[in-house]
Computed example of a mutant assay.
Amino acid sequence: MATPIPVVDLSRWTANHRADQELLAAQVDRSLQSTGFLLVTGHGIEPDLPGQVRAAANDFFHLSQAAKQHYDQNRRGWIGRERVTTARSEGTHTPPDLLEVWSCGVNSSARPADAQQMPRDWPEEIPTLRPLVTAYTDRMRTLADTLLEVMAAALRQPADFFTRHTTRPHWDFTINWYPAANETGTAAPGQFRVGPHTDFGLITLLKRQPGKGGLQIYDDAAGWQDAPYEPSTYTLNIGDLMARWSGDRWRSGRHRVLPPPAEAPQEELTSLVYFHACAPHTDITSLPAPLGRRPYSPVRAGDYLHDKMRTILG
């Protein structure tokens, strides 16, 4: 049975009715305390946009290995197989993840007007990929900041408690392609499409496809459970930095993506994963009790993210 993850309707926030906003903030607080995950509806994202991004990305991933190799750019652009071992971030030893990735982001170390989207080189063979990704990540950034305002209200903090640290462009976006079993072969023992982990930043917004080799989340009582899927929603989960900031009031949800299923050898999936982060120089200090439940030593956001990424990329 799928682990229950609450569905929250963001239109209750954007309609600007105070009573509805307070009810929504309370619902978000309860949900993030129990699972660290939400399903978000009422988000206003064009329904066709994710599919358009996914289709362009799939055209790229189905190019030859030689063609894709041209876009391997120092952990940006194309990241081929055998390169990512996500479970290492939590100290778990597994074989490399069974996926390929297109990775991009914004260099927020530059002045806002000079911020550069990385990587530098985009596939000439798929000219639609860059404008589609740009449109998609623009909408994800706006959606993420709105959700951070809801989360600030849930903690009874000022509306810009989080978003004052996200004004300079800083985000990461990966398109994860999970090839079919008849292409990857049988998974090795302990090998996954993405190994078990928690995300590292503030919040993650996921647009995924359902499948037998799909997303699972970890439940303290029931163990690993299939994540629920609602076609019109985005899956939100909080990451380590947000968990630390909330003093473990909110959980950094542990999750994984199952290996390609032998019973569905032609199943391939593509997930769109947007990671929303604060400015790298932001000092993350746990909220005190009674809101926070566990004080962490302060960390600088950029240092924490950098150290975590070094553990998972070969």
Rank of each mutant, 00 (worst) to 15 (best):
M1E: 12
M1Y: 13
A2V: 07
A2H: 12
T3Q: 15
P4F: 13
P4C: 03
P6W: 02
P6S: 15
V7R: 06
L10G: 03
L10I: 09
W13A: 03
N16A: 14
H17P: 00
Q21F: 03
E22G: 02
L23R: 14
L24A: 09
A25R: 01
A26P: 01
D29Y: 07
D29S: 12
R30N: 13
L32H: 09
Q33C: 14
S34P: 08
S34C: 04
G36W: 05
F37V: 00
L38E: 11
L39H: 11
T41L: 12
G44H: 11
G44M: 08
P47D: 09
A56Q: 10
A56H: 07
F60E: 00
F61N: 00
H62M: 02
N74I: 09
N74W: 13
R75S: 08
R83W: 03
R83P: 00
T86L: 09
S89E: 00
L98C: 02
W102S: 01
W102A: 03
C104S: 14
C104F: 12
V106I: 08
N107C: 10
A113C: 00
A113K: 13
Q116I: 11
Q117E: 14
P119N: 05
W122V: 10
P123R: 11
P123N: 11
E125V: 10
I126S: 11
V133A: 04
T134Q: 15
A135H: 12
T137C: 15
R139G: 14
R141L: 12
L143C: 10
A144G: 15
E149I: 10
E149N: 09
E149L: 05
A152Y: 07
P158D: 07
A159M: 10
A159I: 07
T163Y: 08
R164L: 07
R164K: 15
T166M: 14
T167R: 15
R168P: 01
P169N: 14
I175Q: 12
N176H: 14
Y178C: 00
A181Q: 11
N182K: 10
E183W: 03
A187E: 02
A187M: 01
A188R: 14
A188T: 02
V194G: 01
G195D: 00
T198A: 01
I203D: 03
L205T: 06
L206H: 05
K207D: 08
Q209W: 04
Q209Y: 03
P210S: 13
I217S: 06
D220V: 04
A222T: 05
A222P: 00
W224P: 09
Q225T: 06
D226V: 14
E230R: 12
P231T: 00
T233R: 10
Y234S: 02
L236Y: 11
L236S: 12
I238D: 07
L241R: 07
M242G: 09
A243N: 06
W245F: 13
S246L: 14
G247W: 09
W250F: 15
G253P: 07
G253V: 06
V257P: 04
P259M: 11
A262L: 13
E267H: 11
E268T: 10
F275S: 02
A277R: 13
T282K: 14
P288F: 08
P290E: 10
G292F: 08
R293Y: 09
R294I: 09
P295L: 13
P295S: 15
S297I: 08
R300L: 04
Y304A: 04
Y304H: 15
L305G: 03
K308F: 07
R310H: 13
I312D: 03
L313V: 11
